[in-house]
Computed example of a mutant assay.
Amino acid sequence: MNVLVFRTNINTDERVHRAACRLCKLRTICRWSIDLEDCVLRVESESLTETDVIRLLTKAGLQCDALT
């Protein structure tokens, strides 16, 4: 299981909804969560890479950078 962590601009309900619409469509995501206070997204997946998640959220008009 890969745990991917990202700094994002997801800090409103509307942005959470936009992210959720994209993330929930991917069957390869086992679990995801957003800390609205720190704008941190955590994704658990068997096969997704950081690049996959960044590309997905960027297409939704959201900012996303991997935290290492």
Rank of each mutant, 00 (worst) to 15 (best):
V3H: 07
V3D: 09
L4V: 05
L4C: 07
L4G: 10
V5A: 05
V5L: 05
F6W: 04
F6V: 00
F6K: 09
R7K: 08
R7C: 03
R7L: 08
T8H: 13
T8Y: 15
N9C: 05
I10T: 04
I10V: 11
N11P: 10
T12F: 01
D13T: 00
D13P: 00
E14W: 01
E14D: 02
R15D: 02
V16E: 00
V16C: 00
H17S: 06
R18V: 09
R18F: 09
A19V: 00
A19C: 01
A20V: 11
A20E: 03
A20R: 01
L23Q: 06
L23N: 03
L23I: 04
L26Y: 15
L26S: 14
R27F: 04
T28I: 04
T28E: 13
I29H: 10
C30F: 14
W32A: 06
W32P: 03
W32K: 05
S33Y: 02
I34E: 03
I34C: 09
I34F: 07
I34K: 06
D35K: 00
L36D: 00
E37D: 10
C39L: 01
V40Q: 08
L41C: 03
L41Y: 11
L41Q: 06
L41D: 01
R42S: 10
V43K: 06
E44S: 13
E46V: 10
S47C: 12
S47Q: 10
S47A: 12
L48V: 00
L48W: 05
T49V: 13
T51C: 14
V53P: 08
V53N: 11
I54H: 12
I54P: 07
R55N: 14
R55P: 09
R55Y: 09
R55A: 15
L56R: 10
L56D: 13
L56I: 06
L57Q: 03
L57A: 09
L57G: 03
T58E: 11
K59A: 14
G61R: 11
G61H: 15
G61E: 07
G61A: 08
L62F: 05
L62M: 11
Q63E: 12
Q63F: 13
Q63N: 12
C64D: 11
D65V: 12
A66C: 14
L67M: 11
L67W: 01
L67Q: 06
T68S: 14
T68P: 13
